[in-house]
């Protein structure tokens, strides 16, 4: 899966065509790690309808804060350079991500 970071975020997420999903995660966040297999499964299932990216916040703190992400995990949905939806630590689950994908695709 595409890893986005401070050097390619603009091009790969904000300038990208269509729906882009970004998984903001961190190596110390157990809930993030637990959700990775689900996210990868969803990426395989919906890969032709949206672009799926991962962002390791541990090396991209300023970028994450600029996107108003200050807690993990966060699954953010972008279109046309704008964040159009977001699932934060209390909402993020395999079911809620899939439901949001279906809604936005």
């Amino acid at each position: 899966m595409l890893e986005v970071h401070k050097d390619n975020f603009e091009a790969e997420v904000l300038q990208a065509e269509g729906l882009v999903v970004v998984d903001y995660w961190g190596p110390k966040c157990e809930k993030c790690l637990a959700l990775i297999p689900d996210y990868e499964r969803l990426a395989a299932a919906y890969g032709d309808k949206a672009k799926f990216c991962k962002l390791d916040t541990s090396g991209n703190r300023r970028l994450a804060i600029s996107q108003k992400v200050l807690g993990l995990p966060v699954f953010a949905f972008y279109r046309g350079g704008e964040k159009i939806a977001e699932l934060g630590p209390s909402e993020a689950s395999a079911e809620s991500i899939e439901a949001k994908l279906k809604e936005l695709i």
Binding site: G26, C29, C32, I65, V69, L70
Partner: peptide, 21 residues
């Protein structure tokens, strides 16, 4: 509290401490 969870409200220092350097 609810609206700002993950936006600076946290219950897990291990998960989120990095952001607050």
């Amino acid at each position: 509290e609810r609206a700002l969870r993950g936006k600076g409200v946290s219950y897990c220092a291990t998960c989120d401490a990095d952001f607050f350097s």
